[in-house]
Design a protein around this nucleic acid. Sequence first.
DNA 1: CTGCCACTTCAAGTTCACTTGAGGTCAAGC
DNA 2: GCTTGACCTCAAGTGAACTTGAAGTGGCAG
Lengths: 148, 148
Amino acid sequence: MFLDIGEVSARSGIKPSALRYYEEAGLIASVYRHGLRRQFAPEVLLQLKLIAMGKTAGFSLHEIASMFGQSGLKELPRAVLREKADAIDQQIDELTALRDTLRHVADCAAPSHMECPTFRRLVDLAGRRVSKRVKPALSSRQDGKQGG
Amino acid sequence: MFLDIGEVSARSGIKPSALRYYEEAGLIASVYRHGLRRQFAPEVLLQLKLIAMGKTAGFSLHEIASMFGQSGLKELPRAVLREKADAIDQQIDELTALRDTLRHVADCAAPSHMECPTFRRLVDLAGRRVSKRVKPALSSRQDGKQGG
DNA sequence: CTGCCACTTCAAGTTCACTTGAGGTCAAGC
DNA sequence: GCTTGACCTCAAGTGAACTTGAAGTGGCAG
């Protein structure tokens, strides 16, 4: 019924050391101990998927915890979630621009991309979006200080 | 004509220390020195936008350098760029799923999300995409080892 | 010619997200 | 009842991406 850490690790592809780290960070929780051993509910696998998605989005573990902490998604600040969703929308726009730029650079025969108008337009477009951002999705202490 | 580091910092919103760090990492280059002071070509601002976009996408500085190193985008490995573009496509899918999940959680009135079929479907969908991934876009040493 | 101040270098410090290693525990199988 | 092996804790180490601090340099305004 319950999974011990090796099992969770095997099914999620996340090392036991990382799982313990997540537990300490309040991202997941074991339901009880069998002797020393943590026993996890199977739902933890779903939570770990969510965590992986959050990481892909560039959120810190702390931010992920604030979205769906170990509480098992019971009482979440809906406003925070909507904010994060908006931030992800912005990020998708940026990624789209980067992807298009990459594809353009890969295909464009121009000798210097810096002078290619298509290239400049692509980068510029993305740049504009970045500066329009309300809140930084990726938290390097740099963003938000020293404002551009 | 040329910009010194403070100017570049002011226009890009990136601290001088980070700019020096980027130079050492081979991401940007100054064209010459005026006394001690680095002089940058204005194009560096465009390059910095590209770097910012790459960071948003979760690429390491090393990977970003491999995409468009300080060379000024002259002779780039087109295959690598296309690969990265594909990776970004995958990432966009994941982010879309996460965003939809977040919005669902914010709106869903169910007492426990774990039992909400819409929720499970969303997470599951994303999970499937993740495991279909060819190459990890975000390089934590974990991904790729210990395969799930 | 003096002083200022934005720059310089270099070493060390910081945060995040883990990993590694040493030494210990305990349920189960022989 | 002893060994085995998967787990445990805790401290320290790692790598990425910077930041900070100390000590120095040099062009330009006054």
